[in-house]
């Protein structure tokens, strides 16, 4: 009986991220629109877009291979699994030990690998430009991400997310300079990984400025819906990750019962609302940078992560 309950709680988590992801994107779009003094689309617009895309027929290029048709499912599945394994409302769920932070980053890497391949499949210049830039950004973001993992693991003594969240949520940690640096670095990496301004523009279709959008240019219909959904899930994943690593207060502990879960869920919703608001603010206030400025931007993240790590070597208390 317990096992069924445990599986149910894990299932709720999986369903929660699944349902919440388009809402977060809708919320960010709404806030951005309001900041630009537009009314903006409804919060539910991303859901409608997805359903509309699902119903449409797929237009495939003549020489699209089976890989092109399989990639949307693979990337979506990989991102969904990764997103469902990041603690949201409670730590220590049934399958929490399946993947630690490194595995979650690597799962996103799997998704990106296949998406970049799909960009190469049709053999148009846009697909190639998108794929080649995407892998360059990934090559810059990954070392920075590892430094962040290192910094967090040094504080908590583990890369296991539930353990880290529980440790940081305990009052013993307090404010740490190193964690602050790691958080800024993670925000930078998250912006780059999610193709947000200033690295990429999620709403552009101006050919030469786009990275992620160029890569998926040939997709349509249900395939495009899956890829868009994957991107939304990935955004939610990174927001959840930042919340779980640096602001885990109030997160439920496994087995604490439905009330604690509900409280954790409410707090989680509150936290991601704030995060979404901040992201919208930031995106409105900055401009997109040139592609070859991105190395400096991500290099800053790497340096911050390294600095945080070195600070921890100097003193465990920093």
């Amino acid at each position: 009986m317990d096992v069924i309950a445990d599986i149910a709680v894990q299932g709720v988590q999986m369903l929660l991220v699944f349902l919440l992801a388009p809402l977060l994107t809708g919320f960010i779009r709404k806030v951005k629109a309001r900041l630009q003094r537009r009314r903006g689309p409804s919060l539910l617009q991303p859901y409608r877009d997805l359903i509309r895309l699902l119903r449409k027929e797929v237009v495939l290029a003549d020489n699209a291979s089976w890989l092109f048709r399989a990639v949307p499912y693979v990337t979506f599945a990989a991102i969904w699994v990764a997103a469902a394994l990041v603690p949201t409302f409670a730590t220590g769920l049934l399958f929490n030990w399946t993947a630690d932070l490194i595995v979650i980053v690597a799962l996103l890497g799997t998704a990106r690998f296949f998406l970049a391949l799909a960009g190469m499949d049709i053999g148009t210049s846009f697909g190639g430009i998108g794929s080649s830039r995407e892998v360059m950004i990934a090559a810059l973001a990954e070392p920075a991400m590892l430094m962040i993992v290192f910094c967090v693991a040094l504080v908590a003594g583990s890369t296991h997310l539930s353990t880290v969240a529980n440790y940081i949520a305990s009052t013993a940690v307090g404010l740490r300079v190193s964690l602050g640096l790691a958080m800024i670095a993670l925000v930078i990496v998250a912006l780059a990984e999610n193709a947000r301004i200033p690295v990429d523009n999620p709403s552009t279709h101006l050919e030469l400025t786009m990275v992620h959008e160029a890569m998926i240019l040939e997709y349509s219909g249900r395939h495009l819906a899956l890829i868009e959904y994957g991107a939304q899930l990935k955004l939610l994943l990174y927001v959840s990750l930042i919340v779980c690593l640096f602001y885990p207060w109030g997160i439920g502990v496994f087995g604490a019962g439905p009330v604690a879960y509900l409280a954790g869920a409410a707090l989680y919703l509150f936290k991601i609302t704030i995060a979404g608001f901040l992201l919208a603010m930031f995106e409105t206030a900055t401009a997109k940078m040139r592609v070859f400025r991105v190395p400096q931007f991500l290099g800053a993240a790497l340096m911050l992560g390294l600095l945080g790590t070195l600070l921890l070597f100097v003193s465990k208390g920093l």
Binding site: I51, L54, R55, K56, E57, V58, V59, L60, A61, D62, N63, Y73, V74, F76, A77, A78, W80, V81, A84, F95, T98, I122, G123, T124, S125, F126, L217, E218, G221, R222, L226
Partner: peptide, 28 residues
């Protein structure tokens, strides 16, 4: 998990979407 969620999404999409595929020249 990856296999299950890929099959889940595949199955769910089969239920919802039209399943129609049209071949054409690349858009680019």
């Amino acid at each position: 998990f990856i296999a299950v969620s890929a099959s889940l999404s595949f199955g769910a999409i089969r239920l919802v979407s039209s399943g129609a595929v049209r071949r054409g020249p690349a858009w680019g």
